[in-house]
């Protein structure tokens, strides 16, 4: 059956879950072709990889719309740099040549806010060790846009491309830290329900963390993906489906901070369904596991790294979650996570 896309695009189609994949597959990938030997758009990986001599040129692009623009732990500027740096890193491309940054601003937007965004963007570049080398600016009339929209693209080189579709049975699944921090902080703010507590985005550039892991174990890493929109569930589902494997998750082993867990209970939102902006899911060969964990935990961004599951040869795309009491399927989120009353 053709994937379902509604007559008019709803917000769910942009939320990173099943609805968004349906939209991309049935409209945007229609007729799309890739250069020979390249990992192109149809791969729906974190970025594209084009052969260049004996190396790979990796490219990625992402647009950023977030409400509110400033949130605990970060802002749209930091998000725009980290998102693109992390997408490159997930392809194994940590040798970053440069980034582009386009910005579209709504008429009437405060200059002070723009300066704040720009300062944060620059700070994130310095932290990640990357440079914005070109950009673009547009202003639209009031009401034609809500505040500000950013787009960044990145170009990097690597010797070996790491894909998201190459998990093998027996691989261990590692997450580089706590899950659900960014998404739950934003969901709590957006629900406007006055939740107060230590909720903050985890937005951070993973370049040096991933470089350390790849330097240490090389092909011991079989696949990577960053669990952004749609959360860990969506990223794992994609990895499993594309790799033709199934996954067994150890629920109690998934690191989740207390305030995130509490907010999840309060709003009825699954922590595995919301975005992370400074985490990676890594498929690791069993023999490399110990090294990977040691390298991750020695890095400030990997302190809470944990093994959360194993790759099995069951039904492709199926994720079985062991809750500690019993097993169940873990489903892909449908659309935007919203608080529920039942």
């Amino acid at each position: 059956m053709k994937p379902f896309v509604p007559e008019r695009i709803s917000l769910a189609s942009g939320a990173g879950g099943r609805a968004m994949r349906n939209l991309v597959e049935s409209i945007f990938l229609n007729g799309v072709t890739s250069p020979p030997g390249a990992v192109g758009a149809d791969a729906m990986d974190d970025g594209a990889a084009i052969p260049l001599g004996n190396q790979w040129l990796v490219m990625t692009t992402d647009s950023y719309v977030v409400k509110p623009l400033f949130f605990p732990g970060g802002d749209i500027g930091r998000l725009a740099i980290c998102g693109t740096v992390n997408d490159l890193a997930m392809m194994g491309a940590t040798n970053v040549l440069g980034l582009t940054c386009g910005i579209i601003i709504e008429e009437g937007f405060a200059r002070s806010d723009l300066e704040r965004i720009q300062a944060s963007l620059q700070a994130a570049c310095a932290e990640a060790g990357v440079h914005v080398v070109t950009g673009d600016t547009k202003v639209m009339a009031r009401g034609e846009l809500d505040g500000v929209v950013l787009n960044t693209a990145g170009v990097a080189l690597c010797e070996r491309v790491v894909r998201d579709c190459t998990l093998q049975p027996g691989d261990r699944l590692v997450v580089t830290g706590t899950v659900g921090d960014h998404g739950m902080a934003i969901a709590a703010l957006r629900a406007d329900v006055g939740i107060e507590g230590d909720l903050r985005s985890d937005v951070a550039p993973l370049r040096s963390l991933i470089a350390a892991v790849l330097n240490a174990v090389g092909e011991g890493v079989t696949a990577m993906k960053d669990p952004t929109r749609g959360g860990v569930a969506s990223a794992l589902f994609e990895m499993a489906q594309k790799s033709g494997v199934s996954l067994l998750l150890d629920g109690p082993a998934v690191p989740i901070r207390h305030p995130v867990r509490a907010t999840a209970e309060l709003l009825g939102i699954e922590p595995l369904h919301v975005a992370n902006e400074g985490k990676a899911l890594i498929g690791v060969r069993p023999e490399a596991l110990e090294t990977v964990l040691a390298v991750l935990r020695a890095h400030p961004l990997g302190r809470d790294a944990a093994v959360i599951g194993v790759v099995t040869s069951g039904r492709p795309g199926e994720i079985v979650l062991d809750t500690g009491m019993g097993k169940r399927l873990l489903h892909e989120p449908e659309g935007e996570p919203l608080p529920r009353i039942c």
């Binding site: 979650l321 062991d322 809750t323 009491m325 019993g326 097993k327 169940r328």
Partner: peptide, 9 residues
């Protein structure tokens, strides 16, 4: 029941 996988119990 579903979320905690209790059906198996």
């Amino acid at each position: 029941i579903a979320r905690f996988g209790l059906r198996g119990l």
